[in-house]
Design a protein around this nucleic acid. Structure first.
Lengths: 268, 268
DNA sequence: GTGGACCCTCCCACGATGGGAGAGTCCACC
DNA sequence: GGTGGACTCTCCCATCGTGGGAGGGTCCAC
């Protein structure tokens, strides 16, 4: 046995890792002990393994998964940068989401959990020319934004005088795939290319107004659905959003959206 | 049995939660089914439970732990804001840490994992007047900052002409508690109040220069320790940091710090 | 009455780490 | 050459929130 080898405890203190961690990394093959005593099972580490061990500790502090760290250690230095940058982007994404969450928490703390005034009314049937698509629930926001651009382009290209606001239609119950639609009221007979006509039935609705970024719409929906269910009513798809003040017309904090949920008496 | 009750699957779709989640919340008592059939074990939910269910979903999207959500639901509205704000602060802290991590990843991607030039030399003994403290490893950064202010105040109050740079002394192996010290060279005979004299022995050292925020010092240490262990050397506490260009003298990105690790031949 | 959708409980999995039990090993000191 | 104490081993379990799946029971509309 080499006489410069280190026991696991000594090596752990050197590299600022716990013994448990080192054993775990050994099992994973991420940082295998350079020698294992067949009789006692004792692990021994070589001093030059400290470089990898320290690197693991460093990357773990940056919250990289062990599998990714393994990739990095195994990859040739040129492709390491690529992986590291991908991880940085992953973190950037998390920061973005966390900021949204913080804003929503702030708003909840300010306005309390209700915070929205829900009103009840009756809507006339609404005929729209819409662009439809099907997507995963997580990407509804992004896809709806794309549809808006698409609809505006189609209306403008066809020279159709549409009647604001733009409307968005969304499912009530989110399955694996959600069908969404964006459109507007157009004059009778107008046939914007790529858009299809759809008629939303009239009837009783619950509605509320949301002021602020679209990322905070869940707050409004929370209040709206809660109010609907509290009265023993059932929401009827699709839910409608009217973009009264949209991006480009005002800063994010002043976006104004009207949320309309058709309801029906509980048939039970 | 009330005839307006909902089965778990129906209720789940309504509230955009999974059946598994609802069962889990029922077990936890976070959202107990309003009625459970004694014979079949079937859970039934009342429509007005949708409010809490929706709220749980909303708060979960903001990554609040279920225990905290339980607190919020149980707390009277006035104290809800307090909890929500505390959670927001927790998120803010995570964002802060993630940003630091992103910067470190960026630097690693740019410079590669080595990225630091380690030089070998020999230091003369160094006598400092320092302020010591003991703290948890996690708060070393903060505590060291406090010490710096304390040391500068003590030196100025006593009118002592000290010789820059300021030095920081840190343990090599982090236990539960770490003893740290901050100080400077002072003229012989000078006795700054609150500071104690300490002599750092001379001998062989490894050192490197770090440019940038102190939060990125781990990168430099990683390179430095790796180089030391690779040569079969052992670091000797305390590690020394010389703050050549400190905060107040330059923007964060231009802070210059010299890291010095005394080493000794591996006695094994 | 029957098929199909629904529901039940129980167990396991993820990711990384820590805690602890119970047993074995190493080494410095006497 | 003992011996005590520090060290190490392997297991198992816990965290946290969710999902998957097995194996079996229930509900209801046709």
């Amino acid at each position: 046995m080499r006489n410069d080898l280190l026991t696991i405890g000594r090596f752990a203190r050197l590299c600022r890792l716990s013994v448990k961690q080192l054993r775990h990394y050994d099992e994973l093959g991420l940082l295998a002990a350079v020698q294992v005593d067949a009789a006692s099972g004792y692990r021994y580490y070589a001093p030059d393994q400290a470089r990898d061990a320290l690197t693991i500790g460093l990357l773990r502090e940056m919250d990289l998964p062990l599998t990714v760290i393994a990739e990095i250690l195994a990859a040739p230095p040129p492709s390491r940068a690529r992986i590291l940058r991908a991880e940085r982007d992953r973190l950037a994404e998390r920061v973005r989401r966390d900021r949204t969450r913080m804003d929503m928490l702030e708003r909840l703390a300010e306005g309390g959990l209700p915070g929205y005034e829900v009103t009840w009314g009756s809507e006339l049937p609404l005929e729209l020319a819409v662009s439809r698509t099907v997507c995963a629930p997580a990407e509804i926001g992004q896809r709806a934004g794309e549809r808006v651009g698409l609809v505006l382009a189609a209306l403008q290209a066809a020279g159709i005088a549409w009647e604001p606001p733009l409307w968005g239609l969304y499912p009530v119950e989110l399955e694996d795939r959600a069908e969404i639609a964006v459109g507007a009221r157009v004059p009778e007979g107008a046939e914007p290319p790529g858009l299809v006509r759809t008629v939303l039935p009239g009837g009783p609705v619950a509605e509320t107004l949301h002021t602020g970024p679209y990322a905070q719409l869940p707050l409004a929906y929370n209040a709206l659905f809660a109010a609907v269910h509290e009265r023993g009513l059932r929401p009827r798809a699709p839910v409608r959003e009217a973009y009264l003040v949209g991006p480009g017309e005002a800063p994010e904090e002043e976006l104004l959206t009207r949320l309309v949920i058709p309801v029906e008496e509980d048939p039970a």
